[in-house]
Write a protein that binds this DNA or RNA. Structure first.
Lengths: 128, 128
DNA sequence: TATTAAATAGGAATGATTCTTATTTTAACA
DNA sequence: TGTTAAAATAAGAATCATTCCTATTTAATA
């Protein structure tokens, strides 16, 4: 699965996603890297993010604006309804759920993805 | 919360979403209704879908392409990785999950949304 | 009936993402 | 080591979903 060639651009993008914890968008990654890698193009960022997630090396969250996660082991995400920020949620999530779902619907379940929506402390304070 | 005025267009759009079971996109709703309501515009479809989901009368799924659900009570969704179709999943889902998540992260959790990804029987057959 | 807020049609604008093309890089191997 | 061919790139055009704008229409109510 893994690519045979790893260009400097691809390595940089992968490294950035792996070390980030805020589930950046493609645009955010492009903005963060374009100065330390002059000439880097948006197309390259998008293409490599897709290749890397196709290969299972990073994870693409199925949200209206795509966000990327360096952790590929399944875990739920927490989305602030106020500011849209995304965080990992550290609760133990029933790993038998896919099996249960599979039995209920007859699909071959590959994975599941859960999003909890709520107000982060900052946005909750703003609403007072 | 509910709108005071209900135009024929809005009623039609609501009725369509309520009676459909395939979680249509805005475009699909527009295509389905434009012939029986000549002059209907995409703008009207999008605007009303947003108003209706703001009011909690329908539900907007947080997916890269937005899809709408006439059932507003929480339930997980099943997405085919092959054809992209969306179905409701009828498993009993722990209603204490929001509470658990809330305690773990300090957010005020409003709701959660779970997506199971897998191959529907048709797409699974195609892969043989 | 006149007023006015809400809603509409139609299309322009926006924003995210993908695609195209000409060029450059690099791995493999003669 | 030089050649070749596949893979990757930059730049920007194209696409697609969605929102916004404007002039017009509708409908509740005073």
């Amino acid at each position: 699965m893994a690519r045979t060639r790893f260009s400097p651009q691809r390595s940089l993008i992968l490294e950035y996603v792996k070390q980030s914890t805020d589930h950046p968008t493609a645009e955010e990654i492009y903005q963060a890297l374009k100065d330390c890698f002059p000439g880097l193009s948006r197309g390259t960022v998008y293409r490599n993010l897709n290749l890397l997630s196709d290969d299972g090396i990073i994870f693409k969250l199925p949200l209206p604006v795509e966000r990327f996660d360096g952790f590929t082991n399944p875990h739920p995400h927490l989305i602030c309804s106020g500011c849209g920020s995304v965080h990992d949620l550290k609760i133990d999530y029933d790993s038998g759920l896919d099996q249960l779902a599979s039995e209920s619907c007859g699909y071959q379940i590959q994975r599941h993805e859960s999003f909890f929506f709520g107000l982060c402390p900052g946005c909750a304070a703003d609403q007072q």
